[in-house]
Design a protein around this nucleic acid. Sequence first.
DNA 1: CCGATACTTGACTAATTTGTCATATTTCGA
DNA 2: TCGAAATATGACAAATTAGTCAAGTATCGG
Lengths: 164, 164
Amino acid sequence: MKITAMQEYGLRCILQLAARKPSTSHMTVREIAKQEHLTPVYVAKILVTLRRGGLVKSIRGVNGGYALSRPPREISAARVLAVLGKVDLGKNLCKRFPGMSSHCTHSGDCRIRPLWYVLTQYIYNFLDRLTLDQLIQEEAGVSREIRRLQNQNPLPAPKTPALV
Amino acid sequence: MKITAMQEYGLRCILQLAARKPSTSHMTVREIAKQEHLTPVYVAKILVTLRRGGLVKSIRGVNGGYALSRPPREISAARVLAVLGKVDLGKNLCKRFPGMSSHCTHSGDCRIRPLWYVLTQYIYNFLDRLTLDQLIQEEAGVSREIRRLQNQNPLPAPKTPALV
DNA sequence: CCGATACTTGACTAATTTGTCATATTTCGA
DNA sequence: TCGAAATATGACAAATTAGTCAAGTATCGG
Protein backbone atom coordinates (compact mmCIF):
# COMPACT_ATOMS: atom_id res chain seq x y z
CA MET A 1 0.00 0.00 0.00
CA LYS A 2 1.61 3.14 -1.15
CA ILE A 3 1.05 6.59 -2.48
CA THR A 4 2.28 7.26 -6.00
CA ALA A 5 4.98 9.81 -6.78
CA MET A 6 2.45 11.93 -8.64
CA GLN A 7 0.21 12.01 -5.59
CA GLU A 8 3.03 12.94 -3.26
CA TYR A 9 4.50 15.63 -5.48
CA GLY A 10 1.18 16.85 -6.80
CA LEU A 11 -0.09 17.44 -3.29
CA ARG A 12 3.08 19.34 -2.45
CA CYS A 13 2.72 21.49 -5.56
CA ILE A 14 -0.91 22.37 -5.01
CA LEU A 15 -0.11 23.23 -1.41
CA GLN A 16 2.40 25.77 -2.70
CA LEU A 17 -0.44 27.42 -4.59
CA ALA A 18 -2.81 27.15 -1.65
CA ALA A 19 -0.30 28.79 0.67
CA ARG A 20 -0.07 31.77 -1.65
CA LYS A 21 -1.67 34.98 -0.34
CA PRO A 22 -4.13 35.61 -1.82
CA SER A 23 -4.78 32.05 -2.91
CA THR A 24 -6.09 33.28 -6.25
CA SER A 25 -2.71 34.73 -7.19
CA HIS A 26 -0.59 32.68 -9.52
CA MET A 27 2.84 31.13 -9.45
CA THR A 28 5.05 29.92 -12.28
CA VAL A 29 6.12 26.34 -12.76
CA ARG A 30 9.67 27.47 -12.21
CA GLU A 31 8.87 28.92 -8.79
CA ILE A 32 7.01 25.84 -7.63
CA ALA A 33 9.79 23.57 -8.89
CA LYS A 34 12.35 25.57 -6.97
CA GLN A 35 10.34 25.41 -3.76
CA GLU A 36 9.85 21.67 -4.03
CA HIS A 37 13.26 20.76 -5.41
CA LEU A 38 11.77 19.17 -8.49
CA THR A 39 12.65 19.76 -12.13
CA PRO A 40 10.44 22.34 -13.85
CA VAL A 41 9.44 19.93 -16.61
CA TYR A 42 8.24 17.40 -14.12
CA VAL A 43 6.26 19.98 -12.19
CA ALA A 44 4.75 21.11 -15.49
CA LYS A 45 3.54 17.60 -16.15
CA ILE A 46 2.04 17.30 -12.70
CA LEU A 47 0.26 20.63 -13.03
CA VAL A 48 -1.27 19.61 -16.34
CA THR A 49 -2.81 16.66 -14.54
CA LEU A 50 -4.13 18.92 -11.80
CA ARG A 51 -5.51 21.32 -14.41
CA ARG A 52 -7.28 18.53 -16.28
CA GLY A 53 -8.77 17.50 -12.96
CA GLY A 54 -10.12 21.01 -12.56
CA LEU A 55 -8.21 21.86 -9.41
CA VAL A 56 -5.93 24.53 -10.87
CA LYS A 57 -6.14 26.89 -13.81
CA SER A 58 -3.32 28.04 -16.05
CA ILE A 59 -2.49 31.48 -17.34
CA ARG A 60 -0.47 31.28 -20.54
CA GLY A 61 2.10 33.60 -21.96
CA VAL A 62 4.51 35.99 -20.30
CA ASN A 63 3.57 36.60 -16.66
CA GLY A 64 1.61 33.38 -16.82
CA GLY A 65 1.54 30.60 -14.29
CA TYR A 66 -0.86 28.50 -12.28
CA ALA A 67 -3.41 29.30 -9.61
CA LEU A 68 -6.02 27.37 -7.66
CA SER A 69 -9.36 27.27 -9.41
CA ARG A 70 -11.20 27.36 -6.08
CA PRO A 71 -10.37 28.54 -2.57
CA PRO A 72 -8.25 26.11 -0.49
CA ARG A 73 -11.18 25.50 1.82
CA GLU A 74 -13.12 23.92 -1.02
CA ILE A 75 -10.47 21.44 -2.09
CA SER A 76 -10.11 18.22 -0.12
CA ALA A 77 -7.05 16.01 0.12
CA ALA A 78 -9.22 13.17 -1.16
CA ARG A 79 -10.02 15.09 -4.34
CA VAL A 80 -6.38 15.98 -4.98
CA LEU A 81 -5.22 12.40 -4.54
CA ALA A 82 -8.04 11.11 -6.74
CA VAL A 83 -7.12 13.48 -9.56
CA LEU A 84 -3.44 12.55 -9.39
CA GLY A 85 -3.98 8.81 -9.51
CA LYS A 86 -6.86 6.50 -8.90
CA VAL A 87 -7.20 5.12 -5.42
CA ASP A 88 -7.54 1.44 -6.02
CA LEU A 89 -7.44 -1.01 -3.16
CA GLY A 90 -8.07 -4.12 -5.18
CA LYS A 91 -11.62 -3.33 -6.23
CA ASN A 92 -10.83 -3.90 -9.88
CA LEU A 93 -8.10 -6.45 -9.45
CA CYS A 94 -10.56 -9.28 -9.93
CA LYS A 95 -10.58 -8.45 -13.61
CA ARG A 96 -6.89 -8.64 -14.28
CA PHE A 97 -5.72 -12.05 -13.23
CA PRO A 98 -2.53 -13.11 -14.94
CA GLY A 99 -2.50 -15.91 -17.46
CA MET A 100 -5.15 -18.53 -17.19
CA SER A 101 -8.66 -17.32 -16.54
CA SER A 102 -10.08 -13.90 -17.18
CA HIS A 103 -12.93 -14.53 -14.81
CA CYS A 104 -12.81 -13.94 -11.09
CA THR A 105 -14.23 -16.89 -9.25
CA HIS A 106 -14.43 -14.78 -6.14
CA SER A 107 -17.30 -12.81 -7.55
CA GLY A 108 -19.89 -14.81 -5.68
CA ASP A 109 -18.31 -14.95 -2.28
CA CYS A 110 -15.08 -12.98 -2.08
CA ARG A 111 -13.13 -12.91 1.13
CA ILE A 112 -11.22 -9.73 0.61
CA ARG A 113 -13.61 -7.63 -1.40
CA PRO A 114 -15.45 -6.34 1.69
CA LEU A 115 -12.09 -5.56 3.24
CA TRP A 116 -11.00 -3.33 0.36
CA TYR A 117 -14.41 -1.76 0.24
CA VAL A 118 -14.63 -0.80 3.88
CA LEU A 119 -10.99 0.19 4.11
CA THR A 120 -11.46 2.55 1.19
CA GLN A 121 -14.49 4.06 2.89
CA TYR A 122 -12.54 4.40 6.09
CA ILE A 123 -9.66 6.23 4.43
CA TYR A 124 -11.97 8.36 2.35
CA ASN A 125 -13.84 9.46 5.43
CA PHE A 126 -10.59 10.84 6.75
CA LEU A 127 -9.22 12.49 3.61
CA ASP A 128 -12.50 13.95 2.48
CA ARG A 129 -12.73 16.12 5.58
CA LEU A 130 -9.20 17.39 5.26
CA THR A 131 -9.01 20.52 3.11
CA LEU A 132 -6.04 22.38 1.72
CA ASP A 133 -6.55 25.33 4.02
CA GLN A 134 -6.11 23.00 6.96
CA LEU A 135 -2.90 21.66 5.49
CA ILE A 136 -1.24 25.00 4.85
CA GLN A 137 -0.98 25.84 8.51
CA GLU A 138 2.37 25.42 10.20
CA GLU A 139 3.37 21.86 10.94
CA ALA A 140 2.21 21.71 14.55
CA GLY A 141 -1.14 23.11 13.49
CA VAL A 142 -1.52 20.48 10.84
CA SER A 143 -0.97 17.68 13.31
CA ARG A 144 -3.49 19.19 15.68
CA GLU A 145 -6.02 19.64 12.90
CA ILE A 146 -5.60 16.09 11.70
CA ARG A 147 -5.97 14.68 15.18
CA ARG A 148 -9.13 16.71 15.68
CA LEU A 149 -10.56 15.25 12.48
CA GLN A 150 -9.82 11.73 13.61
CA ASN A 151 -11.63 12.17 16.87
CA GLN A 152 -14.84 13.28 15.25
CA ASN A 153 -16.72 10.14 14.40
CA PRO A 154 -15.13 7.00 12.98
CA LEU A 155 -17.45 6.46 10.05
CA PRO A 156 -20.44 8.76 9.87
CA ALA A 157 -22.31 7.11 7.03
CA PRO A 158 -21.06 5.35 3.91
CA LYS A 159 -22.12 8.26 1.75
CA THR A 160 -19.56 8.14 -1.05
CA PRO A 161 -18.89 4.93 -2.93
CA ALA A 162 -15.16 5.28 -3.34
CA LEU A 163 -12.16 7.53 -3.35
CA VAL A 164 -12.82 8.40 -6.98
CA MET B 1 -2.82 5.10 -3.21
CA LYS B 2 -2.93 1.50 -4.13
CA ILE B 3 -2.25 -2.00 -3.01
CA THR B 4 0.40 -3.96 -4.88
CA ALA B 5 -0.35 -7.15 -6.79
CA MET B 6 1.76 -9.12 -4.32
CA GLN B 7 -0.32 -7.80 -1.43
CA GLU B 8 -3.60 -8.60 -3.11
CA TYR B 9 -2.62 -12.08 -4.25
CA GLY B 10 -0.56 -12.86 -1.18
CA LEU B 11 -3.48 -12.10 1.08
CA ARG B 12 -5.71 -14.32 -1.04
CA CYS B 13 -3.19 -17.15 -0.86
CA ILE B 14 -2.67 -17.01 2.87
CA LEU B 15 -6.43 -16.92 3.34
CA GLN B 16 -6.61 -20.22 1.47
CA LEU B 17 -4.28 -21.68 4.07
CA ALA B 18 -6.15 -20.04 6.93
CA ALA B 19 -9.46 -21.45 5.73
CA ARG B 20 -8.04 -24.97 5.82
CA LYS B 21 -9.38 -27.20 8.59
CA PRO B 22 -7.33 -27.68 10.64
CA SER B 23 -5.36 -24.54 9.87
CA THR B 24 -2.13 -26.39 10.58
CA SER B 25 -2.68 -28.75 7.66
CA HIS B 26 -0.84 -28.00 4.48
CA MET B 27 -1.68 -27.31 0.90
CA THR B 28 0.44 -27.50 -2.23
CA VAL B 29 1.29 -24.53 -4.39
CA ARG B 30 -0.62 -26.22 -7.19
CA GLU B 31 -3.80 -26.39 -5.13
CA ILE B 32 -3.60 -22.76 -4.04
CA ALA B 33 -2.89 -21.65 -7.58
CA LYS B 34 -5.92 -23.50 -8.85
CA GLN B 35 -8.18 -21.98 -6.21
CA GLU B 36 -6.98 -18.46 -6.95
CA HIS B 37 -6.65 -18.80 -10.72
CA LEU B 38 -2.99 -17.88 -10.64
CA THR B 39 -0.04 -19.67 -12.21
CA PRO B 40 1.73 -22.10 -9.86
CA VAL B 41 5.11 -20.43 -10.40
CA TYR B 42 3.74 -17.08 -9.40
CA VAL B 43 2.08 -18.48 -6.30
CA ALA B 44 5.38 -20.17 -5.44
CA LYS B 45 7.13 -16.83 -5.57
CA ILE B 46 4.51 -15.19 -3.36
CA LEU B 47 4.69 -18.00 -0.82
CA VAL B 48 8.45 -17.69 -0.57
CA THR B 49 7.93 -14.07 0.41
CA LEU B 50 5.39 -15.08 3.02
CA ARG B 51 7.72 -17.76 4.33
CA ARG B 52 10.62 -15.35 4.63
CA GLY B 53 8.28 -13.09 6.54
CA GLY B 54 7.62 -15.93 8.96
CA LEU B 55 3.89 -16.22 8.27
CA VAL B 56 3.91 -19.64 6.61
CA LYS B 57 6.19 -22.65 6.74
CA SER B 58 7.08 -25.00 3.93
CA ILE B 59 7.25 -28.77 3.88
CA ARG B 60 9.55 -29.96 1.12
CA GLY B 61 9.55 -33.15 -0.89
CA VAL B 62 6.71 -35.42 -1.91
CA ASN B 63 3.54 -34.67 0.03
CA GLY B 64 5.01 -31.30 0.83
CA GLY B 65 3.29 -27.93 0.69
CA TYR B 66 2.69 -24.86 2.78
CA ALA B 67 0.90 -24.26 6.06
CA LEU B 68 0.40 -21.31 8.37
CA SER B 69 3.14 -21.01 10.95
CA ARG B 70 0.66 -19.69 13.53
CA PRO B 71 -3.09 -19.95 14.03
CA PRO B 72 -5.18 -17.54 11.91
CA ARG B 73 -6.21 -15.65 15.02
CA GLU B 74 -2.60 -14.60 15.59
CA ILE B 75 -1.98 -13.18 12.12
CA SER B 76 -3.23 -9.70 11.34
CA ALA B 77 -4.00 -8.23 7.94
CA ALA B 78 -1.49 -5.49 8.75
CA ARG B 79 1.28 -8.04 9.20
CA VAL B 80 0.47 -9.84 5.97
CA LEU B 81 0.44 -6.64 3.94
CA ALA B 82 3.67 -5.47 5.56
CA VAL B 83 5.46 -8.72 4.70
CA LEU B 84 4.28 -8.61 1.09
CA GLY B 85 5.34 -5.05 0.42
CA LYS B 86 6.28 -2.12 2.54
CA VAL B 87 3.50 0.23 3.46
CA ASP B 88 4.92 3.58 2.61
CA LEU B 89 2.77 6.69 2.53
CA GLY B 90 5.51 9.13 1.62
CA LYS B 91 7.49 8.84 4.85
CA ASN B 92 10.68 8.09 2.98
CA LEU B 93 9.90 10.00 -0.16
CA CYS B 94 11.80 13.03 1.11
CA LYS B 95 14.99 11.13 0.41
CA ARG B 96 14.40 10.31 -3.20
CA PHE B 97 13.82 13.53 -5.01
CA PRO B 98 14.50 13.32 -8.72
CA GLY B 99 17.36 15.20 -10.31
CA MET B 100 18.54 18.29 -8.57
CA SER B 101 18.96 18.09 -4.85
CA SER B 102 19.24 15.00 -2.73
CA HIS B 103 18.23 16.89 0.37
CA CYS B 104 14.67 17.46 1.50
CA THR B 105 14.09 21.05 2.43
CA HIS B 106 10.85 20.07 4.07
CA SER B 107 12.66 18.38 6.91
CA GLY B 108 12.23 21.36 9.19
CA ASP B 109 8.62 22.19 8.59
CA CYS B 110 6.92 19.76 6.27
CA ARG B 111 3.30 20.25 5.36
CA ILE B 112 2.43 16.73 4.41
CA ARG B 113 4.64 14.68 6.69
CA PRO B 114 2.14 14.81 9.56
CA LEU B 115 -0.57 13.84 7.12
CA TRP B 116 1.21 10.68 6.00
CA TYR B 117 2.13 9.90 9.56
CA VAL B 118 -1.34 10.14 11.00
CA LEU B 119 -2.98 8.51 8.02
CA THR B 120 -0.64 5.55 8.36
CA GLN B 121 -1.52 5.28 12.05
CA TYR B 122 -5.18 5.49 11.20
CA ILE B 123 -5.00 2.69 8.65
CA TYR B 124 -2.77 0.57 10.83
CA ASN B 125 -5.20 0.85 13.69
CA PHE B 126 -7.80 -0.74 11.45
CA LEU B 127 -5.72 -3.47 9.84
CA ASP B 128 -3.90 -4.48 12.99
CA ARG B 129 -7.14 -5.54 14.65
CA LEU B 130 -8.29 -7.56 11.69
CA THR B 131 -7.05 -11.14 11.89
CA LEU B 132 -7.15 -13.93 9.34
CA ASP B 133 -9.72 -15.88 11.31
CA GLN B 134 -12.07 -12.93 10.97
CA LEU B 135 -11.50 -12.83 7.25
CA ILE B 136 -12.18 -16.50 6.54
CA GLN B 137 -15.80 -16.25 7.51
CA GLU B 138 -18.38 -16.10 4.76
CA GLU B 139 -18.63 -12.76 2.98
CA ALA B 140 -21.55 -11.36 4.97
CA GLY B 141 -19.75 -12.23 8.18
CA VAL B 142 -16.62 -10.47 7.04
CA SER B 143 -18.52 -7.26 6.35
CA ARG B 144 -20.15 -7.41 9.75
CA GLU B 145 -16.86 -8.11 11.45
CA ILE B 146 -15.13 -5.23 9.69
CA ARG B 147 -17.91 -2.84 10.55
CA ARG B 148 -17.74 -3.87 14.18
CA LEU B 149 -14.01 -3.16 14.20
CA GLN B 150 -14.56 0.29 12.80
CA ASN B 151 -17.04 1.23 15.46
CA GLN B 152 -14.74 0.38 18.31
CA ASN B 153 -12.66 3.44 18.93
CA PRO B 154 -11.19 5.63 16.22
CA LEU B 155 -7.60 5.75 17.41
CA PRO B 156 -6.88 4.11 20.75
CA ALA B 157 -3.27 5.15 21.20
CA PRO B 158 -0.49 5.62 18.68
CA LYS B 159 1.27 2.50 19.89
CA THR B 160 3.00 1.32 16.76
CA PRO B 161 5.18 3.71 14.75
CA ALA B 162 4.25 2.50 11.30
CA LEU B 163 2.80 -0.24 9.20
CA VAL B 164 6.18 -1.89 8.96
C1' DC C 1 18.67 -46.10 -4.77
C1' DC C 2 15.74 -44.29 -8.16
C1' DG C 3 12.13 -41.62 -9.77
C1' DA C 4 8.23 -38.72 -8.97
C1' DT C 5 6.62 -34.77 -6.59
C1' DA C 6 7.19 -30.57 -4.53
C1' DC C 7 9.69 -26.52 -2.86
C1' DT C 8 14.13 -23.04 -3.98
C1' DT C 9 16.72 -19.89 -6.40
C1' DG C 10 18.32 -16.54 -9.47
C1' DA C 11 18.10 -14.76 -13.86
C1' DC C 12 15.25 -13.20 -17.29
C1' DT C 13 11.23 -10.85 -19.89
C1' DA C 14 7.13 -7.90 -19.90
C1' DA C 15 4.32 -4.28 -18.19
C1' DT C 16 3.71 -0.22 -15.72
C1' DT C 17 5.13 3.91 -13.68
C1' DT C 18 8.53 7.78 -13.42
C1' DG C 19 10.81 11.30 -15.30
C1' DT C 20 12.95 13.80 -19.53
C1' DC C 21 13.28 15.97 -24.11
C1' DA C 22 12.12 18.51 -28.09
C1' DT C 23 8.95 21.16 -30.18
C1' DA C 24 4.82 23.93 -30.56
C1' DT C 25 1.67 27.57 -28.90
C1' DT C 26 0.22 31.66 -26.27
C1' DT C 27 0.96 36.26 -24.45
C1' DC C 28 3.17 40.45 -23.26
C1' DG C 29 5.96 44.41 -23.97
C1' DA C 30 9.39 47.12 -26.34
C1' DT D 1 6.14 42.74 -35.14
C1' DC D 2 9.59 40.45 -32.98
C1' DG D 3 11.60 38.23 -29.07
C1' DA D 4 11.39 36.61 -24.43
C1' DA D 5 8.80 34.15 -21.06
C1' DA D 6 5.57 31.15 -20.14
C1' DT D 7 2.40 26.85 -20.69
C1' DA D 8 1.04 22.39 -23.94
C1' DT D 9 1.87 18.08 -25.90
C1' DG D 10 3.37 13.74 -27.33
C1' DA D 11 7.15 10.82 -27.86
C1' DC D 12 10.82 8.99 -25.58
C1' DA D 13 14.15 6.93 -21.83
C1' DA D 14 14.81 5.18 -17.20
C1' DA D 15 13.35 2.82 -13.18
C1' DT D 16 10.36 -0.10 -10.83
C1' DT D 17 7.16 -3.79 -10.44
C1' DA D 18 4.97 -7.99 -12.28
C1' DG D 19 5.29 -12.36 -13.87
C1' DT D 20 7.97 -16.38 -16.25
C1' DC D 21 11.61 -19.79 -17.02
C1' DA D 22 14.98 -23.15 -16.17
C1' DA D 23 17.83 -25.66 -13.42
C1' DG D 24 18.36 -26.91 -8.77
C1' DT D 25 17.51 -29.43 -3.91
C1' DA D 26 14.75 -32.12 -0.58
C1' DT D 27 11.66 -36.01 0.56
C1' DC D 28 8.95 -39.97 0.16
C1' DG D 29 7.67 -44.58 -1.60
C1' DG D 30 8.64 -48.59 -3.88
